[in-house]
């Protein structure tokens, strides 16, 4: 695949996210060499279930992102409910309460666009299942900056709207099954 060695992996998912992420994240080793930053659309009632849920299933450390925290290798960060999550060029994380994008806060577009701006071609990005068009613009920005773009196979995704929108916006992205995405992360990044 094209692109520089990734310094960061970003993932966006919505409806069906937990099942899809459960195929990928538990595969990854505790010493995965770059941080993984994830936006999942969740209700805005501020309760955070994602980090505790995946903490028990993953070998990597799993956390909810805190403002101005340094993103570290071997750690998975989830965006907190009702905040946008952005990544700075020094790999610190910033939160924002800017208006929702496509009715979503956190927004996948916001995370992905910040990753493209901050890391250029050193980003690997994944769009998973979801029933919204969020992530398409962001994935396009990643492609334009020369990063690696991957999309979950729409036919097997629990909800295909998000993969289809992303594929339309970013035709050069690779369409892969969940297993193949996990495989890529293991072989091309962790190896």
């Amino acid at each position: 695949m094209s692109g520089a060695p990734p310094r960061i992996v970003v993932i966006g998912a919505s409806a069906g996210a937990i099942q899809a992420l459960s195929v990928i994240l538990p595969e990854l080793p505790a010493d995965f060499p770059v941080p993984i930053i994830i936006v999942v659309h969740v209700p805005t009632d501020r309760s955070n279930i994602l980090a505790p849920l995946f903490e028990t299933r993953c070998r990597m450390t799993v956390r909810e992102a805190e403002d101005k925290e340094q993103a570290l290798p071997g750690v998975i960060y989830f965006a907190p409910p009702d905040y946008h999550l952005l990544v700075e060029s020094d790999a610190t994380l910033s939160l924002s309460t800017d208006e929702p994008v496509l009715y979503s806060r956190p927004s996948i577009d916001v995370l992905f666009e910040s990753a493209a701006d901050s890391f250029g071609d050193a980003v690997s990005a994944v769009i998973l299942t979801g029933a919204s068009a969020d992530g398409a613009r962001g994935l396009k920005a990643i492609c334009e900056a020369g990063g690696v773009a991957m999309i979950e196979e729409p036919e097997t995704a629990q909800a295909d709207t998000m993969p289809l929108a992303a594929a339309a916006a970013c035709p050069e992205a690779r369409i892969l099954t969940l297993e193949a995405i996990a495989d890529y992360l293991m072989k091309d990044i962790a190896a």
Binding site: E88, S94, S96, S114
Partner: peptide, 9 residues
């Protein structure tokens, strides 16, 4: 200001 947000705005 935090760069990523200010750039976006």
């Amino acid at each position: 200001y935090a760069q990523a947000s200010i750039r976006r705005r």
